[in-house]
């Protein structure tokens, strides 16, 4: 069976002629469905924000705090790019360093979000206080969950990097993680715009 599995890898040229790496394609497909998932939650948020506004509660949002948080998350995307560039040059140690930084930035973002939630709860804006509150926490909460999953994933990638699993021409794992992480960042930019800026 081993030989057949090996053949499996090299043989099927038609697909490879398209220049498609199946893991990357799978990730892209997954992310496209994630776009629709967030699309659903975003449409819920916008629907209720427009039709059942809660000005008192939306005024509680701390744009400055979350602005800083947004900057932190964006920076973490940048560190992933730098990490990938490092391993493409074959520098495994630099990759590990950048991944560590990414994990740290992701954790700071999550801490900021938890802090924000705590403040808002103290002000009386909760999951049950209004439809606005319900949709706000659901939307940002599910994004936060995605960041958390990303941070955990980054830890696995970091462990692999430290074990020397990646090399100049063997960095698919980093790349796929990067796709996910950038996606989560892009979603946040959309959320930041519609929740905090508009």
């Amino acid at each position: 069976m081993e030989s057949n599995a090996a053949l499996h890898k090299q043989e099927f040229k038609a697909g490879h002629q398209l220049g498609l790496d199946h893991k990357k394609l799978g990730m892209w497909l997954f992310l496209s469905s994630e776009v629709m998932f967030f699309g659903g939650l975003i449409s819920a948020f916008l629907h209720f924000k427009i039709n059942t506004p809660s000005p008192a509660e939306s005024a509680l949002l701390d744009v400055a705090l979350i602005g800083v948080n947004t900057f932190i998350l964006l920076t973490s995307s940048f560190t992933v790019v730098l990490g990938l560039a490092a391993i493409q040059r074959g520098n495994s140690r630099a990759l590990a360093g950048y991944l560590g930084l990414t994990i740290l930035l992701g954790a700071v973002f999550l801490t900021g979000q938890v802090y924000e939630f705590k403040m808002l709860y103290q002000e009386g804006m909760t999951l049950q206080s209004s439809v606005y509150g319900s949709s706000f926490y659901t939307l940002t909460g599910f994004h936060g969950l995605h960041v958390l999953i990303g941070v955990v994933w980054a830890v696995f990638v970091l462990v692999n990097a430290l074990r020397g699993r990646y090399a100049e021409n063997e960095h698919g794992g980093v790349e796929i993680f990067g796709l996910y992480w950038h996606f989560v960042d892009i979603v946040w930019i959309v959320l930041f715009t519609i929740i905090y800026l508009v």
Binding site: T52, Q128, S130, V131, S134, S135
Partner: peptide, 12 residues
Amino acid sequence: GTLFFDVAAGGD
């Protein structure tokens, strides 16, 4: 206890 479909609270 969210209110998405709670008509009294503006759910739809």
